[in-house]
Each structure stands twice: as C-alpha cells, then as structure tokens.
C-alpha cells in the first residue's frame, strides 16, 4: 500500500507542477506588462474590416492601414521580398507621417532590418496572405502582402461590441500600440473621437 512518504512525495510533485505552470503563466503576464510600459509608442489608424468579419463573439477585429502592404513599401521592384512566406514572420519598418501624425510601412524584410533610423520603428508581423493581381496589358501585376501583428483583436465585455463596431466603421478610431525592441507589438489603448483611452494597467 501507499505509505506516508509516497504521498508526501506526490504532494511535492503536485506543488512543483503547480509552481511550473504558474511561473509560465506569470512570465507571459510580466513580459506583456513590461512591453506595454517600456515599448515605443506608435499610433496607427484603424480601418474598417469587412462587416461580416468584424464582430465575432466577444471581440472586435481591428484592421490597420499597415495590414495591407503593397506599392511603395514593396519597392524597388514592387515585389514581396524573398524569404517572406505565407504563415511565416516578417518585419515592417514604420515611419511617421508628420502631417497626419500616423505611422505607415516604409519597407519590409524577412529578417530584422539593419540601418533603422531614429524616427523609424520595426514591427514584427506574420504573413497572412501573399498575392499578386494578374498583369494586364496596361500595367504589371501588383503584389500585396497581408500582415498580422497580434494586435487585431480587441476583447470587450459580453454584449458591448456593437457600439465600438459602429465607431470603427465610421473611421473615428486610432490605436495606440507599444512596440518592443524585438518588434513585438501590444495594443495599449484606443483613441476614440480624438479622446485617448488607455487600457488599465494590470499592476
């Protein structure tokens, strides 16, 4: 039969498992908190997403101007740089447009870019889709890279998503995003009708 020492050993192991799992969870919380507090702040304009996809369950999907990358950002050849694959990571260099005070994609690369200016920010993304519109006789096909930066979901209390959804569609929302040194982005708050609302800090 199982005696005292065996069950005491099990207690120790159970505490070990609980401690390991708690530590792993706490690590994410602390890392996120640090990112929000120390990351460089960037303001992005939010674009309306296809209404059918906009509101799913209890979160609002936020689309960004930097989600759809094409044209100048893919210069010089207007192609998606080599090494960026569907489902893989890529880095986008954001630069500030002084006139509208929002950030837009200057260039993209598969690896962490070198020679980033002081007024630029590197954000890490995942390539959701890469496609090229077919070339016509008048113009060459244009490549488009659809990125995903991990800041596209805004969770809301049950049943309060509709009002926010309307605001997104009327284009009066901007997002405040904290970007870490490695390019990881975290949603820090929203600017609704010019009024900034930060998400409450956890600690």
């Amino acid at each position: 039969m199982i005696g005292k020492p065996a069950s005491r050993l099990f207690l120790g192991l159970a505490v070990l498992v609980a401690a390991l799992q708690s530590a792993a969870l706490a690590y994410i919380v602390v890392a996120r908190d640090r990112l929000l507090k120390t990351g460089r702040e960037v303001v992005l304009s939010v674009t309306p997403v296809d209404p059918r996809d906009l509101f799913r369950g209890d979160y609002v999907t936020l689309g960004y101007d930097i989600t759809r990358i094409s044209g100048d950002a893919l210069a010089p050849r207007g192609d998606v740089p080599e090494g960026i694959e569907r489902g893989g990571t890529f880095y986008a260099v954001l630069s500030l447009d002084a006139a509208s005070n929002t950030w837009s994609v200057a260039r993209v690369s598969a690896d962490y870019p070198r020679g980033v200016g002081a007024d630029e920010v590197v954000i890490k993304g995942r390539a959701r889709a890469i496609y090229t519109t077919p070339a016509t006789r008048q113009e060459a096909g244009t490549a488009t890279l659809l990125g995903r930066y991990g800041i596209e979901s805004y969770f809301v209390p049950e049943g309060t998503g509709r009002a926010l959804e309307e605001k997104v569609r009327s284009h009066s929302i901007k997002a405040v995003v904290a970007v870490g040194a490695d390019g990881t982005a975290a949603l820090k708050g929203l600017i609704v009708d010019g009024e900034r609302r930060d998400l409450p800090a956890i600690f």
């Binding site: 799992q21 994410i28 919380v29 996120r32 991990g150 800041i151 969770f155 975290a186 949603l187 956890i202």
Partner: peptide
C-alpha cells in the same frame, strides 16, 4: 480540472492584453 484551469488562464491572459497572436 487543474489542467483545464491552466488552459483557461492562457485564454484569460491573451484576452487581458488583447493578444491576437497565433
């Protein structure tokens, strides 16, 4: 049951910080 709570906590953290990740 504890493992289910572990998974739920992962969900809660991603909800708290609006992590849309993978």
């Amino acid at each position: 049951a504890a493992l289910a709570v572990f998974g739920a906590t992962i969900m809660l953290i991603s909800q708290m910080f609006h992590i849309d990740g993978n």
